[in-house]
Every structure is written in structure tokens, then in C-alpha cells.
């Protein structure tokens, strides 16, 4: 049941955020500092999710080149940075990750 409560809460929060100005109009104001802070939310949240999974997939720090999560993440980042092609980065790094898992 918790999952339905989770989804209902997520749905409610999201629609209220999206409706904020469009529906409730000028009664709201958007402070400049918040606008500025929001720019960094995606980079901060996504990196916070990635780093522990890449560097410590089993819970303890694993910086060896035999860690497929670490190698895959570095390759995904490099391909995305160089080509700006998100999907290519995902496919290439996933294939490499799979190969490393299969070999190891």
C-alpha cells in the first residue's frame, strides 16, 4: 500500500509545483536566490546518486579497475562529455559494464 501513497504524494507535489504560477498567479513570487540554487539541483542530486554506486557498489570503497561500476561510469561520463550524445554514452558504457561483469 505504501507504494500507492508514495505515488499519490509525488503526483500531488508535482502538480502543485507546476500549477504554482499558472493557476495561482501573481500571489506568488519567486525569490532570486532560489532561482539560482535550482540551477544546481540536477547536478547535485544525480551525482549524489551515482558516486556511491560507482565507487562503493558493495558498500565498501572499491577503486580497482576490476570494479565494473566504476569503469562503466567513467566511460559513460567521458563519452557524454565528448560527444554530448546521451544515448550513445549509455549504450557504450552499458556494453562495457556487461563485458566486464561477464569476464569477471
Amino acid at each position: 500500500m505504501t507504494i500507492w501513497l508514495t505515488i499519490a504524494g509525488m503526483a500531488l507535489l508535482t502538480v502543485l509545483i507546476r500549477a504554482s504560477f499558472l493557476v495561482f498567479g501573481q500571489r506568488l513570487s519567486f525569490p532570486a536566490w532560489l532561482n539560482r540554487a535550482l540551477h544546481y539541483v540536477p547536478a547535485a542530486v544525480l551525482t549524489a546518486l551515482v558516486v556511491p554506486m560507482a565507487l562503493a557498489p558493495q558498500g565498501t570503497l572499491d577503486l580497482s579497475p576490476a570494479n565494473p561500476y566504476l569503469v562503466g561510469t567513467l566511460v559513460a561520463g567521458a563519452v557524454a562529455l565528448l560527444t554530448r550524445r546521451t544515448l550513445l554514452a549509455i549504450v557504450v558504457s552499458f556494453a562495457l559494464y556487461g563485458a566486464l561483469r561477464w569476464l569477471g
Binding site: 544525480l46 565494473p68 559494464y97
Partner: peptide
């Protein structure tokens, strides 16, 4: 099959270009 890595790869690929 390590699909959790697909998530890691997806997030990384989205974030990396922003880090310039």
C-alpha cells in the same frame, strides 16, 4: 543483469556535459 548500472549510466550521461 546489473540493470542498476543502467541507472548509473543514465544519470552520468545526463550530468557529465553540465560539468564543463
Amino acid at each position: 543483469w546489473g540493470l542498476d548500472f543502467a541507472m548509473v549510466a543514465t544519470f552520468t550521461a545526463i550530468v557529465a556535459p553540465q560539468l564543463k
